[in-house]
Design a protein around this nucleic acid. Sequence first.
DNA 1: TATTGTTATACTCTATAACTATA
DNA 2: TATAGTTATAGAGTATAACAATA
Lengths: 177, 177
Amino acid sequence: MTVSKTSEKSSEKTADTAKVRKDAAETQGQGPGEALQLGELSEQLGYVLKRAQLKVFENFLRCMASLQLTPAQFSVLLLVEKNPGRNQTEIASTLGILRPNFVAMLDNLESRDLCARIRSTNDRRSHILVLTDKGKAVLARAKKLVATKHEARLNELLGPSNREALLGMLSKIANEF
Amino acid sequence: MTVSKTSEKSSEKTADTAKVRKDAAETQGQGPGEALQLGELSEQLGYVLKRAQLKVFENFLRCMASLQLTPAQFSVLLLVEKNPGRNQTEIASTLGILRPNFVAMLDNLESRDLCARIRSTNDRRSHILVLTDKGKAVLARAKKLVATKHEARLNELLGPSNREALLGMLSKIANEF
DNA sequence: TATTGTTATACTCTATAACTATA
DNA sequence: TATAGTTATAGAGTATAACAATA
C-alpha cells in the first residue's frame, strides 16, 4: 500500500526521504518546519473562492450567534418577507434548495415561530409561506446585525467601492457562468 | 402544523390566500406565475459568493470530466507537486482538510496510481507524499484543461484585469477576514 | 508523554425515488 | 395524469474521539 508503482527502479523507493526534503529545500528554499508553498493554487479562482466563502459564512454565523440564524435560514426569511403569498416550491427553488430538503428547514423555522405555513384556499395542495410577527422582528434584528457587524467588516477590509465591484463580478459569475 | 401562531385574530388564518397573492402583486408588481424578487438577497455578499462558488465548481467538474478530478483532488496534486517530501498532515492541514478525512482521499488517488505514500526513514510514523509519473502526467493535462477551458471562460466573462482584481479581493477575504 | 496515520462514528448538505392529497 | 408537500434514504463533506505504531 505504501509501495510506489511509479518506477521500475525499486531501489529509489527506499531512498532516504530526508534527501527528498533536502533536495526540495535546496531547490525552493523550503525547509521541513516551514510553511508549504501554495504555488499555482493561490491563482486558482475556485480554490480562493471556496476559502473566501467559508470565511464569510464563518463570520456570518459569529455575527448571528445571538439570533441563531444560519446563512440559509436568513435567506429564507428575507425571501419570504419580500415575496409574501408564495408557496414552498417557489421559495425553495429560488434559493436552489430541493423541495424535500426544504421541509426540515421550514419545520425548524416554524417550530421557532419565525414563519408559518398556511394551506392555500386556491390550491389546497400548496402551503403559502408568511413570516410571523416574531419572524419579522427577528429578521429586522438580523438585518441590523448583518449591516453593522458583518457587512461593515467587509467594507472595512475592502472599501465600499471594491465591495460593490466584488459583488458585481460574483453576480455575473453566478448568473452567466 | 399549518396553523399560524402569529395573531390572536384566528379569522385571519382562514383568509383567502388568493388575496395575499393579489395584495403582493399590487404592491410589488408581482404575479403568481412570475419570478420571485430577490430583494436584499442579491446584495448579500455571502449569498452571491456561495452561488458563484457552486457555479465555478460545477464548471470545473465539467472541464475535468475526462480526467475525473474534483477541485479538491486537483488541489492535492498541485500541492504535492509543489512541495515534494511533505507528509500527510502537512499537505492536509495546508488545504484545510482534517487528517482523518484525508485518508480516503489519498486511498483514492493512490489506487488510481496518481500519487504514492512513502514511509519516511527519518520518522517512521509519517508518510511522505509524492506524485507518480502518471500523476505528474495527469496533473499536466489537468493544468492545460483548467487554463484553456475553465480559466479561459472566466477571462472571457470578466476580462483579465477584472479576474485579477477578483482574485485579489477574494484572497484578502480568505486571509484577513 | 506526544505525534502520525488510521478507524469508527456522527452530523450536516445534497440528491433521488416514491408516497399522499389534492388538482 | 400531474403537482405540492412529504418521507425515506443515500451520498458527499466535515467534525471528534480513540487506537496502533513510533518518537
